[in-house]
């Protein structure tokens, strides 16, 4: 109780000083270095922007903001569905190729979103790959009009989700792998039927985790 009469500020100061060492200082400067591009972007807010910002504000700014949020929530929902869905399937079901998919699904990391975007566009565009496939299967025809186009918002959500769901997949699979089996065994020891276990234990547990 020696420190009781010290002010809170002093306590906090002492605590921080204790943690300042070579590691602290070096990591502080490294993070500063890494943050330079981000800081530059923020600093550009205060630069002269000519009249483009005014024009943008009167025309597309709100649409851009709305689109950004649509993209954000779209990707959030889709990565969740694909990531958790795939992790669930490869963790709890045994089907041909399950071992392959367990690691192959991680490879989605290797493909940047813009590659998916180019591929989706090229596949579905007018006279694109799908057109060629249809033509070779069924002969000449006006297929372009009936081929859906994936170059708008939906295509953007798909491309980014395909590229990023790996993060959700890896984390979810790891949690299924390390936690659920212990719980299932525990549940079985306590006399639950296997079918009930999933609902009682696993969903409860994963719900908290996610």
């Amino acid at each position: 109780m020696k420190h009781d009469n010290k002010s809170l500020v002093k306590q906090v100061f002492d605590y921080s000083m204790k943690n300042i060492n070579a590691w602290y200082i070096s990591s502080f400067f490294i993070s500063l270095l890494v943050a330079i591009p981000i800081l530059t972007v923020f600093a550009s807010f205060f630069e002269d922007t000519s009249n483009y910002f005014e024009i943008l504000k009167n025309t597309f700014l709100y649409e851009y903001i709305f689109n950004s949020f649509t993209l954000l929530f779209g990707v959030l929902i889709l990565t969740f569905i694909i990531g958790v869905g795939c992790a669930y399937l490869v963790s709890f079901y045994d089907f041909p190729g399950v071992k392959f998919f367990k690691w192959a699904l991680i490879l989605s990391f290797a493909v940047p979103a813009y590659i998916y975007a180019y591929s989706l566009t090229a596949f579905f565009e007018n006279y694109g790959t799908l057109f060629s496939i249809l033509k070779s299967l069924f002969g000449d025809g006006e297929y372009n009009k009936s081929i859906p186009k994936f170059d708008g918002m939906f295509g953007a959500v798909l491309s980014i989700s395909f590229s990023l769901f790996g993060y959700v997949y890896v984390l979810t699979r790891a949690s299924f792998h390390y936690q659920s089996h212990n719980l299932i065994e525990l549940g079985q020891n306590l006399g639950f039927l296997k079918e009930n276990l999933y609902f009682l234990l696993y969903y409860h547990q994963q719900g908290q985790l996610l």
Partner: peptide, 16 residues
Amino acid sequence: SKGNDRAQILAVAAGE
């Protein structure tokens, strides 16, 4: 508006 110049020509060819 979307796509490059070729995409515009293709849009006419496709009846868009």
